[in-house]
């Protein structure tokens, strides 16, 4: 059985009271010595910062576990849940304080914004491993759009910008399903 899927619709401009939560961008337990700070901006194709995007991150725990844990919307200050949700500020900036993922060295990132019919998936790599199944498929020039760069002069700081379009457009990803037909694909994108 394959059911017809529910279409995606834009997040619109009014999600701000509903989705962001206090501490949403801080999955690292407070004061954890391994904390990394990932920050950057979201830009549109004209190079203008996007002030109303919502970023969601999902990742493995430092031990490589992908089991996750409850508590991302009401953090207890101790548990690492693997999930983060951060709106961009007026200048398009976001900050994520997290722990380094175990296993594959990347965070999964889902980008929402008004003016996008459908969210965009990408990845934030802290290193570009030789054996990664995705990276060799990408043109060398575009591979770098998935790499967070070390922030000189900071302690475990990394920079990662998202370019929704334009010359520096970030590589966005899709996750095909076996047997999915064209009709059942999300429309309106």
């Amino acid at each position: 059985m394959s059911l017809p899927v529910t279409p995606s619709q834009t997040i619109g401009p009014f999600y701000g009271e509903a989705l962001p939560v206090p501490g949403g961008g801080e999955p690292a337990p407070a004061g954890h010595p391994d904390t990394v700070t990932l920050h950057g901006r979201v830009y549109d194709g004209g190079g203008t910062p996007v002030p109303d995007a919502l970023l969601e991150f999902w990742q493995a725990a430092p031990d490589g576990s992908l089991a996750g844990a409850p508590g991302s919307l009401a953090r207890d200050g101790v548990t690492f849940t693997g999930f983060a949700r951060v709106p961009t500020g007026r200048d398009g900036r976001y900050v994520l304080r997290t722990l380094p993922p175990g296993g594959a060295p990347f965070l999964s990132l889902c980008v929402f914004a008004p003016g996008l019919s459908r969210h965009l998936f990408t990845r934030v790599y802290f290193a570009l491993p030789e054996d990664d199944p995705l990276l060799p498929a990408l043109p060398a020039g575009r591979r770098a759009t998935l790499l967070a760069t070390e922030d000189p002069g900071t302690h475990r700081g990394y920079r990662f910008d998202v370019h929704l379009s334009g010359e520096r457009e970030t590589v966005f990803l899709e996750f095909p399903c076996a047997g999915r037909t064209e009709e059942s694909r999300p429309s309106g994108s």
Binding site: T48, Q59, G71, S72, F106, S165, V171, F172
Partner: peptide, 29 residues
């Protein structure tokens, strides 16, 4: 228009992707 990617998304093939798992939520949330 300036928020629409011009390039098609790149398919991630094969099992084992982090994206095939997801966050969990509970009564605390």
């Amino acid at each position: 228009p300036l928020r629409q990617p011009a390039r098609p998304p790149v398919p991630v093939l094969g099992p084992g992707a982090v994206e095939l798992t997801g966050p969990v939520f509970g009564p605390a949330d």
